[in-house]
Amino acid sequence: MKHLYIFTLLVFSLSFNASAQTIPSVQLENLAGENINTGDFDNDGAPIIICFWATWCSPCKRELNNYMDFYADWQDETGVKLIAISIDDSRSISRVAPYVMSSGWEYEVLLDTGKEFARAMQVINVPHTFLLDGNGKVVWSHNNYAEGDEEELYEELLKLVK
């Protein structure tokens, strides 16, 4: 226990400058088979939404399917880009591409098979959604999805572009 205190103190003594969470750098693969480093996420100064999901997670699929109804409008109004991070493991990873294609998602979809990026973003369970401002800082996050959550997300998005 004593060690924990010492360590915690050390951590906080070093983090006098602690600020909003930024995006850690993890190498993932997209559905086109290209390596993408999460540290390079960039949308030319416009906001980014990051959604963690899995093919076995019903609320996750509801969330991303519902967002599709609004995505074109959101993009027009705010320039936002949505990146959907699948945490499917080797059991279900091969289902990701056909599911995404048949659902007509226009998001960038990345595969986080080992959950390394989810861990780095402190995701405990899915769905977990983050909103990043134009500088790549997390300004809002939400764990869970209920019908209508898109309205709150949309309000947060508008705050970033006004």
């Binding site: 951590v11 906080f12 070093l14 983090s15 006098f16 400058n17 602690a18 600020s19 909003a20 969470q21 930024t22 402190q122 405990i124």
Partner: peptide, 10 residues
């Protein structure tokens, strides 16, 4: 770049 503390609790 400043240091950042992140974490979670369950």
């Amino acid at each position: 770049e400043p240091g950042v503390v992140t974490g979670n609790v369950s």
